[in-house]
Write a protein that binds this DNA or RNA. Sequence first.
RNA 1: CGCGGGGUGGAGCAGUCUGGUAGCUCGUUGGGCUCAUAACCCAAAGGUCCCGGGUUCAAAUCCCGGCCCCGCAA
Length: 321
Amino acid sequence: MGTPEFAVPSLAKLVQDGHEVAAVFTQPDKPAGRGKHLQAPPVKAFALERGIAVHQPARIKTNEEVRAVFQSIAPDACVVAAYGKILPEWLLQIPRLGCINVHASLLPKYRGAAPINWAIANGERETGITIMQMDAGLDTGPMLAQRAIEIGEDETAPELSARLAEVGAELLSETLLLVERGEIEPVPQKNDEATYAPMLKREDGLIDWQMSAREIANRVRAFQPWPGTYTIFRGVRLMLWRARAASTLTLDGIKNVEPATIILIDKTSLTIACSGSSALRIEEVQIEGKRRMNARDFINGARLNVGDRIADSLFGDQQSG
RNA sequence: CGCGGGGUGGAGCAGUCUGGUAGCUCGUUGGGCUCAUAACCCAAAGGUCCCGGGUUCAAAUCCCGGCCCCGCAA
């Protein structure tokens, strides 16, 4: 059971390892893109290519059909990776070996829907994969295996997600083998150390220029590809695609500049004052309705000068639509 | 037919409402200045104004049709 790109390597690994994948459950196709076509989740596309049966129930908990399918399959195990739905108690109890989840954090940290994004947003240097036995709670089940990896200094969420997906597939493969042999003792999570990584909301991407440059830069990396990190500039959304905290050398004599003000323009970037005497060096942006462009092109087109403001307000709250 | 923005020398944009000389910031090329420079000064090259019709003395601009890019929404 899984839905996005993150889940594909794990499914591929299951197939490659010779496991009999009786069925794949994934989210229903959804209208996407500019027109309104239905779009198949990545996991569905992969499964169909391999000739695996695909089920896309809108609801599970009270769905008798799903229940019947599940009971007739009577799987040894159910593997879940970023499925995007809550699994009801009755389903959790059907597989002999339980429901095994591939979660992209070092549990109990970052339980929830967006562990990768929030780990980067919070400036973590390290995250990882936890393989766990699912229970009725949200990512609260006992852990079967865990593997940590470093987060790159400039690594974005899609990049980290791709790496974690591979690590997850690998660790899943190893763990499943041990589970089949009954050689793993599940380790309960320390609930008092748990933190949550809630699903991202559009507003999470709105820049608060009262934050430090480092915090903003982290969010720029973290909230890709959605909701992005943006401010409201001349009445439209201005997305920041690449930015980093400016070196302290750049900061001389800017102590009293109001946040969101341009303090430096050079060949490839523009530097914006943030709070706490920090500054954000912006290298790639995108204006609403336009393509992504490097900072130089943006400066040329928007005719920016030092002293101009990059945000209509510090919070962008005048957008309120 | 979900809503909206856009397509103008190589890049990013203005000009379009109120038809009439192709503009700005860069880049490129040549020259100059300088110990030197991606800095500065001077000069030059480079455009079917997305495509096809229509209106008009005249269309980047107005009207009709089409293609393509992007944001929102989901």
